[in-house]
């Protein structure tokens, strides 16, 4: 297809396939520009002084001589950014570790162990997956209040540290494809259940764990509603919850200069973009685990 489209430029007759190719690439490229433009715009604006931003007409291309870190410096004075980054990192790392640990144990049990009521329990948990998370926020909030965990790290870390049903499901789907004979022969050799998990299953499940870890890390870093609901002091906010409302003009009543808003957004977004580019392969393949076969 592509070769045909290319030969069109060498004076050959244009075919229908050429037109379809041109149409396809035009549409695909336009949409790619549309998807990437906000991210470009955010990064570009974050390095430009505010006098250049609140003008008409706006400049689409960067103003190379005027780029600076001023917005970032101003933002650092205004908000406890290192603290927020630290909170976000701690929360994302700890919850990711929890999800991988609990998710693989539970996933292994549901994939390979036989126990009474396994299928019933599994489908009950899958029903929970269908439940909108919003419905759980209010009782979870009340529990946090009852434990006096409001506005503490406990509130940010503990609820959902297991990664929930989704982590279990992903690991189960992955572990189901591992050969059962390995487990049986290890059991025959007298290995205990935990040894089997640690020595045989866990090493084989590393690719699945990697996918789970990446998605958990991004999901927890970006999580908004829960940290918003259970924290109130500046010191306990995570990055999106600290920056989002603080930079949204309707919430504060005061207008943060737009260059600083874009600088804040860039600080929150770029780490995830780097993670994405680094683990691209896992994203483009991994999210479909369990969804295609059902």
């Amino acid at each position: 297809m592509t070769i045909k489209g290319f030969s069109a430029f060498q004076g050959r007759q244009w075919t229908r396939a050429d037109f379809i190719n041109i149409l396809a690439y035009t549409l695909l490229t336009l949409w790619a520009l549309l998807a990437l433009f906000p991210i470009y715009w955010m990064i570009k604006n974050s390095f430009e002084p505010n006098q250049l931003l609140n003008v008409w007409p706006p400049r689409v291309l960067p103003n190379w001589e005027r780029l600076s870190l001023d917005n970032y410096n101003a933002l650092l004075v205004r908000f406890p950014l290192p603290r927020w980054v630290g909170n976000s990192l701690l929360v994302a790392l700890a919850r990711t570790a929890g999800a991988v640990f609990f998710g693989s144990l539970a996933g292994y049990a549901f994939a390979k162990l036989r126990f009474f009521g396994r299928e019933v329990l599994f489908w009950m948990l899958m029903a929970v997956l269908m439940l909108p998370s919003f419905i759980l926020i209010i009782p979870q909030y009340q529990i946090i209040r009852a434990f006096a965990w409001y506005d503490t790290f406990w509130a940010l870390l503990v609820p959902g540290i297991t990664g929930g049903v989704w982590a279990m499901f992903l690991m189960r789907q992955f572990m189901r494809s591992l050969p059962t004979e390995l487990i049986e022969s290890a059991r025959m050799d007298g290995a205990g259940e935990f040894t089997i998990f640690l020595r045989i299953i866990a090493p084989l499940a590393v690719p699945g764990m990697a996918v789970l870890a990446i998605f958990q890390f991004i999901g927890n870093w970006n999580n908004f509603v829960w940290p918003l609901v259970v924290t109130s002091s500046k010191e306990m906010r995570t990055l999106p919850v600290g920056l989002g409302p603080a930079l949204s003009p309707k919430d504060t009543g005061q207008v943060t200069p737009i260059g600083e808003v874009m600088a804040g957004a860039t600080i929150a977004a770029v780490p995830m973009i780097v993670v994405f580019l680094f683990f691209q392969r896992y994203f483009l393949k991994g999210i479909t685990i369990g969804a295609i076969k059902g």
Binding site: P38, I39, F224, A265, A268, A269, F276, F283
Partner: peptide, 14 residues
Amino acid sequence: YLPSVVSTAILSLV
């Protein structure tokens, strides 16, 4: 895919 790894709250600011 790239926009979906960025927090919706942050993307909303942009």
